[in-house]
């Protein structure tokens, strides 16, 4: 059994998330990953993505990415209308290849971080963030 790159990336995203996503969103996240990696397949390890398991409000979800030795790190949200969230390009005076910010998530979905290492390889980490839907909220 062999898989195309497209299929492999989808599996890396997790079967559950992949089946939950409409076709359009699947293509969008796949394109966004390919745009950053130039088609290369990201490995695992060497990158940490920290995000809450459950976000109280999808408008403001704190995330932190860290990949020692990375030249740049991109953050993607597989279930947003457009998956791109942010890209950090680290300069020579970066104290760590790490950054924190606050992001918007349109609903429960996988958040993906991919680092481009100094040697041109890529590593990826992902985490599902559940976004709660309010009952009233005034």
């Amino acid at each position: 059994m062999s898989f195309s790159r497209r299929e492999t990336i989808l599996m890396a995203l997790g079967a559950a998330a992949a089946t939950a996503l409409p076709m359009q969103a699947r293509a969008a996240i796949e394109d966004a990953i390919a745009a950053f990696t130039d088609g290369a397949e990201p490995g695992e390890g060497g990158i940490t993505l920290t995000a809450p398991e459950i976000a109280e409000n999808g408008n403001t979800v704190p995330v932190e990415v860290s990949a020692p030795g990375a030249a740049s790190i991109t953050i993607l949200a597989a279930g947003n209308p457009t998956p791109d969230v942010a890209t950090f390009n680290f300069g020579p005076l970066a104290g760590a290849q790490a950054a924190s910010t606050r992001i918007r998530l349109a609903g429960t979905q996988d958040v993906i971080a991919i680092a481009k290492m100094e040697d041109g390889s890529f590593v990826q980490a992902s985490q599902e963030v559940k976004v709660t839907i309010g009952g009233c909220g005034g």
């Binding site: 791109d84 969230v85 950054a99 910010t101």
Partner: peptide
């Protein structure tokens, strides 16, 4: 030190 590209998904 750092450059960041921000997309509409930033809060």
């Amino acid at each position: 030190v750092m450059e960041m590209i921000l997309e509409p998904a930033i809060s």
